[in-house]
Structures are given as C-alpha cells and as structure tokens.
C-alpha cells in the first residue's frame, strides 16, 4: 500500500539557515496525524515545503503525494492534485465576502459546488449567517472556520492544518477540534500541526514529534502521549520534584 504523503530526507533552507534536516515522514490515508514540536522546530516549514511555497526549496530530498513526486512543482499544481493547506493565522481574503472566499476555494473545480456549500454550512452554521459579510470583519474563530471551509471546498484528499487553535478561546478550540474530527470521519486525511499537544493527541490517531528540523519520535497517539519526554515537555506533567519544591531541568532530551 502506498502512503498518501511521503516526505523523504528533506532539507529546507531559509537563506543560510537550515530549517529542515533530513526530515522524513509518511501519512497513510484515513487518519489524523498530529505533528508536535516547540517553536522553531520546523513544523510550519515542513508544511510550506510540501506545498511548494518556499522558492527553490526543498534543497534536497523528495516528496510524493499518492505515489507521484511533487517536490519542485508549482504551488498551484500541488494544490490542484488534492492537498489543501490552511495556513497559520487564517489568511482569509479579507476584502472578499464569506461566500466569495468559499467560492474561490473551489476555483480549480469545474463541477457544481452547491452540495459542498451546504456541507460547509452544516459544519459551520455561523458562516451561513455571515455569508455576505467581508471576511475581514469576522472574529478570529469565524475566520478559522472560514479558512477550513475554504480549504474543504476544493474537495481535498489531504488537509494540512497549521495551528488551528492559535489565538482562540478554549471553548472555541474544542468546537474546532470536534469539527476537525468529523471532517476526518467524512473521509479527509488530516495532517495537524499544533502547539496545543493535549488537544492534538486527543483527536489524532498517530503523532510525530519534531525538534530542530527533524523527526525524533513517532507512534500511535497513545504511545506518544505515554512517552515520558512528551509528558514532561509537551503535556506539562511533572514527574519529579526536588526537596525544596523547585523543578530541576536536569533531564537530557535523548534525541539531541
């Protein structure tokens, strides 16, 4: 069985700074894969590299979608093959209406989109109320919903979600993640980049941990959640305390 997305030994540079160091990853069709890691670990860079958004990158390595090589291709072509990317910070078209934002999501398609619009409004009823408003006038949570809805309008097979919880209230985060789950149940494979490790691990079937531009840990969501390093550094479960009650960060991360 071929995997839906396969990244092999990818190096990506920003000028002289190397952001990805031989990163490899496989995403099988069907599940939700969570991608964890601290700031600057290379999570967003990986997604941007997959989408071909970084000019002349990846410097080395290969990326396959559904068995076909996509590295070095134009972003437009990669998107048209069935990968949708919801960028960090929403990035809706602020001066287009909600409806226009959704329509532009289906730009590359030729068939009717009425059914898809109904589907989006079923996931996000609030977008229906605001469909003739400029997207720039929506709240942060509504913009996130719109960004996800816009991505779904292309009927993607793989959805790359970059920090969907960024800047949202806990209640809204829960709402968004519930919908992410049901989108996956409806048949879209999801690669989820998230700082909120607890939330991400609760919906994911598999998880990967990135540090300094490479993957250091991979497994089912349960395995990763049970890893002592992940517990301490990502989930914040302290395991030992000194006599005086100060936390001592002696522990070495074994993958450095």
């Amino acid at each position: 069985m071929t995997s839906l997305l396969r990244v092999e030994n990818v190096d990506t540079y920003y000028g002289l700074i190397q952001a990805l160091r031989g990163a490899s990853l496989e995403v099988q069709a069907g599940g939700i894969v969570a991608l964890l890691g601290a700031n600057g670990a290379g999570k967003t860079t990986l997604l941007k590299t997959v989408m071909g958004l970084l000019e002349d990158q990846p410097d080395k390595g290969e990326i396959f979608f559904d068995g076909q090589p996509i590295h070095g291709r134009e972003t437009e072509d990669i998107a048209r093959r069935g990968i949708a990317y919801v960028p960090e910070g929403r990035e809706v078209f602020r001066e287009l209406t909600v409806m226009e934002n959704l329509k532009i999501g289906a730009y590359a398609r030729r068939d009717a989109i009425g059914e898809d619009l109904e589907g989006i409004f079923r996931y996000f009823p609030r977008l229906l109320e605001r469909r003739d408003q400029w997207a720039g006038t929506l709240s942060g949570g509504e913009q996130q919903m719109l960004a996800i809805g816009r991505a779904l309008m292309s009927r993607p097979r793989l959805l790359l979600l970059d920090e969907p919880s960024l800047g949202l209230s806990p209640l809204l985060v829960q709402e968004i993640f519930d919908i992410v789950k049901s989108i996956n149940t409806d048949g879209v494979t999801i690669l989820l980049v998230e700082q909120n490790a607890r939330m991400a691990l609760s919906v994911a079937s598999r998880a990967l941990v990135m540090e300094r531009g490479r993957f250091v840990l991979e497994g089912s969501a349960e395995e990763v959640a049970a890893d002592p390093d992940v517990q301490e550094f990502y989930l914040g479960l302290a395991t030992e305390e000194s006599v005086k009650g100060f936390k001592r960060y002696r522990r070495k991360k074994r993958w450095r």
Partner: peptide, 24 residues
C-alpha cells in the same frame, strides 16, 4: 465573473491565491 474573483483574490493575497489553485 470567476476570473474577476480570481483577480481580486490575487490582489489581496498572492500566496494564498496560489494555494487555491489559482495560476497567479
């Protein structure tokens, strides 16, 4: 028109327009 919509989207955010499959 759809082409006009694509033009306005490209004006507002070129990178995201490419993500929509628009040949900017």
């Amino acid at each position: 028109s759809k082409a006009g919509l694509a033009m306005r989207a490209t004006q507002q955010n070129r990178a995201v327009a490419r993500l929509m499959g628009i040949r900017v």
